[in-house]
């Protein structure tokens, strides 16, 4: 148990992009560790490199400096065992819900077997979309489309689930509903989740741990355990220590500890 490698580990990871106005440091020396089956929320202002963090972890991008390992192995290329849920559902509008869910297999193997179809139906059932498999994405509401996006990410049963502000495009009510839905899914089959968000209540409700990031160049300025057990409900959010925790997060976000403008590797 103690020998299990961390699901995700960043060591002094920096990311610099070439832009027209010169190099842009998105991440300036990030260190973090996520244990297996841990639910970690990454909280930060817009443009702090949260999404870059996610793309680095899934191997869609290579860091300019530093070392990233996933499940003990260095990330050198995109990893199939990382499921990604994007801010927008990003479904294929011409394909039915079921076709969208099996898309990862169709895309890699070129064809889809009956076992995969069964798995797709099963997973659609779990996300509350049983019976909607034949619909087109355009016929579903925004929340339901995002459920399809989640089903697609879970389809290959990934060890890691990366969620990039998955509910931020939804209306407030649907957003809350989807949060509880995600909790339920995660409790039923715990995975390592990296959940990018800029919503404090969302981070507090969902995560075991909250990583707070500074403005660009992004750095982890706080690593805080959420003072809440599981299962969680609306009630548990009202506890005073939780309120206090949320207030603390807010103060970190509003007055971020300004990092030195030229970050040296710590």
């Amino acid at each position: 148990m103690t020998l299990a490698p961390p699901a995700i580990s960043f060591q002094d990871v920096a990311q610099v992009f070439a832009t027209k106005s010169g190099p842009l440091t998105a991440l300036g020396g990030v260190n973090l560790e996520v244990a297996q089956h841990e639910f970690v929320a990454v909280l930060g202002p817009s443009g702090c490199g949260k999404s870059t963090l996610l793309r680095l972890t899934s191997g869609l991008m290579m860091p300019s400096a530093g070392q990233i390992t996933v499940l003990g192995l260095p990330v050198t290329r995109p990893r199939e065992d990382v499921g990604i849920v994007f801010q927008q559902p990003t479904l294929l509008p011409w394909a039915s819900v079921e076709e969208n869910v099996v898309f990862p297999v169709k895309h890699t193997k070129g064809r889809v077997g009956p076992a995969h179809r069964d798995r797709a139906r099963e997973i659609l059932e779990t996300v509350g979309l049983g019976g909607f498999g034949k619909r087109l994405p355009g016929e579903l509401s925004g929340g339901m489309q995002q459920r399809v996006g989640i089903a697609r990410a879970l389809f290959l049963n990934p060890d890691l689930l990366m969620m990039d502000e998955p509910f931020s495009a939804l209306d407030a009510l649907t957003r809350d509903e989807m949060g509880y839905e995600l909790l339920r899914l995660w409790q039923a089959s715990p995975k390592t989740v990296m959940f990018i968000t800029h919503s404090i209540p969302e981070a507090v409700l969902l995560a075991d741990r909250v990583l707070v990031m500074s403005e660009r160049p992004g750095r982890v300025i706080a690593d805080l355990k959420v003072p809440l057990g599981r299962p969680r409900s609306e009630e548990s959010l009202r506890a005073p220590e939780v309120q206090e925790f949320a207030a603390h997060l807010r103060s970190l976000l509003i007055k971020p500890a300004k990092p030195s403008p030229k970050p040296e590797a710590a």
Binding site: R55, R77, P78, E80, V82, T90, H107, T108
Partner: peptide
């Protein structure tokens, strides 16, 4: 949408697909 291209890349699928 660039996310779909990322999804494609994250799956390590053959490039023509």
């Amino acid at each position: 949408p660039p996310e779909l291209i990322e999804l494609s890349r994250s799956l390590n699928a053959p490039a023509y697909r």
